[in-house]
Design a protein around this nucleic acid. Structure first.
Lengths: 339, 339
DNA sequence: TTGAAAGCGCTAACAT
DNA sequence: ATGTTAGCGCTTTCAA
């Protein structure tokens, strides 16, 4: 029951030309007379002719689509990144296919296979918190799929990468707590596998050391599912509350963990910041409306999406194999509560 | 620099068969010997053969992709709907292409054209708050594109529709305010064009009338941009605050408006609910963490996405033109603050 | 300057 | 049961 679009053939027939001539006219070739070109163009415009992208793809062996894998789109940070990705991709004529790993390794592998089966021309990925084995990405990469990592990058694969200065962001946030007088500062971190976790925990520890405080391993809790399961955050916070002497502040290394901690603290009726201060990474637009106004590390998510996409399209459209890979590092911003 | 995938031809050559035989083996045709089928299947599996979806699309004149247009993905309500859409679509082998109108009419028109140019097999849409003219949708529909409307539907186009019982949801929320003793209840509504606006304002008025309160038109404010511009919400709230006697409660008809009102009230240091009660539609997962715990009308967004997609795929895959169109109405839930 | 023909990967009607 | 061929819509040699 689908409408049959006009093809180059229809135009050729109507104008008594060959399909190649019509094609040339539309592609603005030089080997064609101005008059013929004119006729074809006018007729095509009248019929609102649109070249069939699928036929084009088949011919060019390019789908003009790129795949994106994030943990979940219902997360301000990722949805802002996606907006940045789309702004660049659409402008360059690429379709964006968005998939979610839900912080699940098997889902990530399956979703990558799915994207590959849809013939994506390239991939943008922020790996899931459960991803440790990189075989699925390595084999795709080796078979020629251009990949750009953003946010959560991986060491083992040599390609373009875009992230924020996680170390500095975490350092700033922790320093802010220290400057406010907190000394027992705990850290609720994402999965230990992730690049961002190592970098952010590193920044946290550096700030402590700056204040001559020896980082206490019992104050660092890792959440394998990145906060997708509230229970794991609850467990982490509970354990922290049991540590003696009790920590007085928490630094959470991701959006989901920041709001997760908030949720748990509220549930246990622990006032923020009176009984427990809280700060963390977050790009939520509702952050200033939360019952406890907290300071957060904000990432230039939109920009990160744009930069990553530009790099990917460069890879895709490059004639020769690219060997010079860039790692772009953007700056975070410490955002204080609106008074 | 893209990897060249194995094709049916490669297999045929290697096995000394014709492409049609290989094709038949892979498609599990009956007109083929078990032995040959076996050989082909094994070889194909070894090479990890994946049929080229683009070639298939060209052949079948189907892209196996569906377009989705929502106001913005960085909105819990919509991202939950998208999750529902993807769950059904992917299972049935369809790719979902997500686009955002950002509540802008021109963007919606452009994005629809873009989707059409990508040969989508069908469209799921919640129209933008700025959409009044439906020509773009009508002409697509008339030329044969299957469309299912969800959330914000339109009267003029006869097709499947999925939404919640907006009237009842609004009625319940307003009634809740009335039961708490509020009598001067204002309404901050979305664009007047939208189906959801009419229905929700209708439910709001019905609840008032139930309490023998004559709805006061000066207490109803419409936001053309659906709250995308905080200024319009601020203006609405300011105007409401100037009305004498001043309203004591606000019912907001959408997610963006509910949080928008909250933001404005906070900015103007108006305590919620002491100085102004607030309730409204919202699917935000952070709603219970807000500084003022509010009651909200929650929609079964995930389910809405699933139902809409099932209906759309039905339309797409139907052999004969469908004439019997369904309008599915789901129920909302009034969610109270966690104590 | 234009047309004819091949080919991208696959399926299916038509031979054999 | 298997092969040959045409064709989906388009671009691009190669001929004229």
């Amino acid at each position: 029951m689908k409408y049959k679009a006009t093809t180059i053939k229809d135009i050729a027939k109507a104008l008594n030309l060959s399909t190649s001539t019509v094609s040339r006219a539309l592609r603005d070739s030089h080997e064609i007379s101005a008059a013929t070109k004119q006729t074809v163009l006018e007729y095509a415009a009248k019929l609102n002719f649109q070249p069939n992208p699928i036929a084009l793809s088949l011919k060019e062996r390019k789908s003009h689509s790129i795949g994106v894998i994030v943990a979940e789109i219902a997360n301000s940070f990722f949805s802002q990144i996606i907006n940045g990705i789309e702004s660049v991709a659409n402008e360059k004529g690429y379709t964006v296919i968005i998939s979610q790993s839900h912080e699940n390794f098997e889902k990530e592998v399956r979703t990558l296979q799915y994207l590959a089966s849809r013939s994506i021309d390239g991939l943008l990925i922020s790996v899931s918190s459960a991803t440790n084995d990189l075989q699925h990405l390595k084999s795709m990469y080796q078979s020629g799929l251009p990949i750009v990592f953003f946010d959560r990058t991986v060491e083992e694969i040599q390609t373009h990468k875009v992230m924020v200065d996680n170390y500095q962001g975490a350092y700033n946030a922790t320093l802010h707590l220290l400057e406010q007088g907190f000394r027992r500062i705990a850290c609720v971190a994402n999965s230990e596998h992730l690049s961002i976790t190592k970098e952010r925990v590193g920044g946290y520890m550096a700030a402590l050391q700056q204040y001559k405080i020896e980082p206490d391993p019992t104050l660092i809790k890792y959440c394998f599912h990145g906060g997708m399961l509230l229970e794991e955050v609850e467990l982490a916070v509970k354990e922290l509350l049991a540590v003696k002497p009790r920590p007085t502040a928490i630094f959470a290394t991701s959006d989901k963990l920041t709001t997760g901690c908030m949720r748990v603290l509220k549930k246990h009726k622990i006032a923020v910041p009176a009984a427990m201060a809280l700060t963390g990474f977050s790009n939520s637009e509702l952050i200033h409306l939360l019952h406890a106004p907290i300071t957060v590390v904000q990432q230039p998510a939109y920009e990160m999406g744009q930069v990553a996409t530009e790099l990917l399209l460069q890879l895709i459209e490059s004639k020769r194999p690219v060997k010079d890979f860039k790692t772009k590092m953007l700056q975070t911003k410490l955002v204080f509560p609106e008074k």
